[in-house]
Amino acid sequence: METLKYRFENGTRPLPPSPQVVGVVGSGNLEVLIESAPLNGGCAIEIKTAAVGFGPIWEAVMRDFHQRWPLADARITINDVGATPAVVSLRLDQAAETMLGTAP
């Protein structure tokens, strides 16, 4: 297992206080938890993945997500057992849409 951490600053879209879980590792290959957290406008992302050595790809996917969804005061936890970048992006978008009730 590898743990990756990313943080993006100056988000403009605050979240409501209730956490959301999208996807379940047991029934697929990815779980995303997104929740509000006091991070001075930042967005902190922690990824636990079984696919070791893909840090640059994860970083690109997270940067792309943050460009679409500049979340403020958000904590995102991802548990991965081999999801493709497209599935990761889809689950992140679903979580953000669920939290905010809107598209990017």
Rank of each mutant, 00 (worst) to 15 (best):
E31G: 07
E31I: 02
E31F: 01
V32Y: 05
V32P: 06
L33H: 09
L33T: 12
I34D: 00
I34Y: 01
E35F: 01
E35H: 07
E35S: 14
S36R: 10
S36I: 00
S36V: 01
S36M: 09
S36W: 12
A37P: 05
P38E: 13
L39Q: 06
L39Y: 05
N40H: 14
G41D: 02
G41E: 04
G41R: 06
G41Q: 03
G41K: 08
G42L: 06
G42K: 07
C43N: 12
C43P: 11
E46V: 13
E46H: 01
E46A: 13
K48N: 08
K48E: 13
T49W: 02
T49I: 09
T49E: 10
A50T: 15
A50S: 14
A50W: 05
V52T: 14
V52S: 10
V52F: 02
V52E: 15
V52K: 13
G53Q: 09
G53L: 11
F54T: 10
F54V: 11
F54C: 12
G55S: 09
G55T: 11
G55M: 02
G55N: 03
I57T: 15
I57W: 12
I57L: 15
I57K: 11
W58G: 00
W58F: 15
W58D: 00
W58T: 03
A60W: 07
A60N: 15
A60P: 09
A60Y: 13
M62P: 02
R63P: 04
R63I: 00
D64F: 02
H66Y: 15
Q67H: 09
Q67S: 10
W69D: 08
W69V: 03
P70G: 05
P70A: 07
P70L: 10
P70K: 04
L71G: 04
L71H: 06
L71P: 09
L71S: 03
A72I: 07
D73S: 04
D73P: 03
D73E: 03
A74I: 03
A74V: 03
A74H: 08
A74T: 03
A74Y: 02
I76Q: 09
T77I: 11
T77P: 00
I78A: 03
I78W: 03
N79K: 14
N79A: 13
D80N: 13
D80F: 08
V81M: 09
V81P: 00
V81H: 10
G82Q: 08
G82M: 06
G82W: 04
A83P: 06
A83D: 07
T84V: 06
A86V: 13
A86Q: 13
A86P: 01
V87F: 11
V88W: 01
V88G: 00
V88Q: 00
V88P: 00
L90P: 00
L90F: 10
L90C: 12
R91N: 11
R91I: 07
R91G: 04
L92Y: 06
L92I: 08
L92C: 05
L92P: 02
L92T: 06
L92G: 01
L92Q: 05
D93V: 01
D93M: 08
D93C: 07
D93L: 07
A95C: 09
A95D: 05
A96M: 09
A96S: 11
A96Y: 02
E97I: 10
E97S: 14
E97L: 01
